[in-house]
Nucleic acid binder design. Sequence first.
DNA 1: ATGAAAGCGCTAACAC
DNA 2: GTGTTAGCGCTTTCAT
Lengths: 343, 343
Amino acid sequence: MTAERRRPLTLKDVSEASGVSEMTVSRVLRNRGDVSEKTRVRVLDAARALGYVPNKIAGALASQRVNLVAVIIPSMSNLVFPEVMMGISEVLDDTPLQPVVGLSHYRPEREEAVLYEMLSWRPSGVILAGLEHTDAARAMLSNAGIPVVEIMDTDGEPVDAMVGISHRRAGRAMGEEIVKSGYRRVAFLGTKMPLDHRARKRFEGFTQALAKAGIEIADQEFYAGGSALLKGREMTETVLTRTPDIDFLYYSNDMIGAGGLLYCLEKGYDIPAQLGLAGFNGVNMLKGLPRVLATMDACRFEIGHKAAEIIAARALGIGEVGEQRITLSPEISRGDTLRPPVA
Amino acid sequence: MTAERRRPLTLKDVSEASGVSEMTVSRVLRNRGDVSEKTRVRVLDAARALGYVPNKIAGALASQRVNLVAVIIPSMSNLVFPEVMMGISEVLDDTPLQPVVGLSHYRPEREEAVLYEMLSWRPSGVILAGLEHTDAARAMLSNAGIPVVEIMDTDGEPVDAMVGISHRRAGRAMGEEIVKSGYRRVAFLGTKMPLDHRARKRFEGFTQALAKAGIEIADQEFYAGGSALLKGREMTETVLTRTPDIDFLYYSNDMIGAGGLLYCLEKGYDIPAQLGLAGFNGVNMLKGLPRVLATMDACRFEIGHKAAEIIAARALGIGEVGEQRITLSPEISRGDTLRPPVA
DNA sequence: ATGAAAGCGCTAACAC
DNA sequence: GTGTTAGCGCTTTCAT
């Protein structure tokens, strides 16, 4: 259509093409200030005809405003985080703010580097997963002068705002429920991730609840990498072979739990009477398995939603600036793999 | 630590704190030009002590360079795209370039809006899914003066470069394989997505291959939304009830295929002798199911990899600027649900 | 309703 | 090896 062009178009080009000053062109393009309908149309036509795309870099520098929200999460393949993102997007879609995602891959130094990178674009706010960061990262966050929301976990002190659940309490709740349901030989199966603090806290709360009932973890198994479904299957086989009298399997996520469930069904275990299972997250992708795995919702969508609301309220000065430290309460769903409490 | 601060720090602050000119500070911070070790250290110390974070907005405006690569994909929950992202990241991690992701949700106008938004940040390149875009989007792309790579699909004319597979050919290949294996009553189960051009092309190639063997689709069923695993299950039941003599089920993705597989196993179908199944994608998350679903790898990782290589080569002028229109050849894996070809 | 001037924070290009 | 000058393309502010 248009001939080959190297230099991107500037306001000046539109100004010349429309015979209107750069300033007025700028006003039209941003819908700011009074502009007569006639010039408005003229400018818009010129801009469209040229194929002008505004330069936000220059705009941001001049206005000292960047409508970007930095979101730093550990990974995208965890299923958990895409849902958090949806919650965030749903809120930001009604504002001029835009999320920009960075990944830490569960590594603090990587998180620090990504944060540094993102802050150098001067975003209007930051949302990041977890409360554990490097000292440098924490310093950057408190010095940035923008709203910061730490999400997912609330077992600790946030730099600024936080929205999440208590993973320690979540682990404890599941532990208590298992005890109440009469299971006694309990195994834990999870990821080998020293840096997944949320999984660690759940594990701690879990063992604590069992301890209170005089029960110790009967066996445990950890994995790293690979297909979660398959790993769940393999770990379950390992545990059940090594400790045949196990009567409950607690998985650190639903995906490995699903693999374990498929394995147990094939082996003909009587579930949940003889053997109970539970995961964590409430991944609805797993609806459709032969049985519904007991689990606990991590409130992912709501967490994203509330975090974005806090950012929007403070960055834009719109909406209520409500409570800044929100702990949501996840609920256990028993599914078909956790028998009812015994009287 | 540091007292409350509103105004972000500038180069000038570091300059004053270190007693070195702004220009030299800038050089140190970017590792450019010769700077004596002594001043280097002094500047670095000052910057760190102050907690200075460079302003990339100003830097980009001055240097006319932005090390961002815009990546526009339909969705993150599709499992396909996170893998494409990994391929992209693996390449860009070795360069100064950084991917920034935007989502189109399979809607062309949305894609256009996201593209406009991203181009206004003047990225060094664009990677986007598919060959179908609005006219305005196509115009923006060709006027941007930066490398553009359209990925996933190669059945059409790209604006600039492209990397992907021929979905038409993929559908045809699977159709031919099914025919060769002696199946005759074939059903198609897929997403109700008029805008998923790749699924549509696979379907077209598929029916075409069957037609060549004188076979017509015996039944078909489409779904929208919800848990794919569950939907696969439900659709399979619907089809098998409505058309009991079906001997092959072709699914438009592995996830619904997995749901169907679980259903068929429960119902006691003899797979693959009595009933064959196949999906599409090669989602390795599904390893761990009772049987391995026949599928066709979509080369997701490699596509991301090659696309990023093209961008890096052209934007940075490094590496080979090789072929710019790459069609990869996916292979069928029969798994346990597609019987061998009949003699 | 429109325009002119100044400057956002940095870097390219050129001195020294 | 280090400093100076002049913008990058916009928006703010103030004038008209």
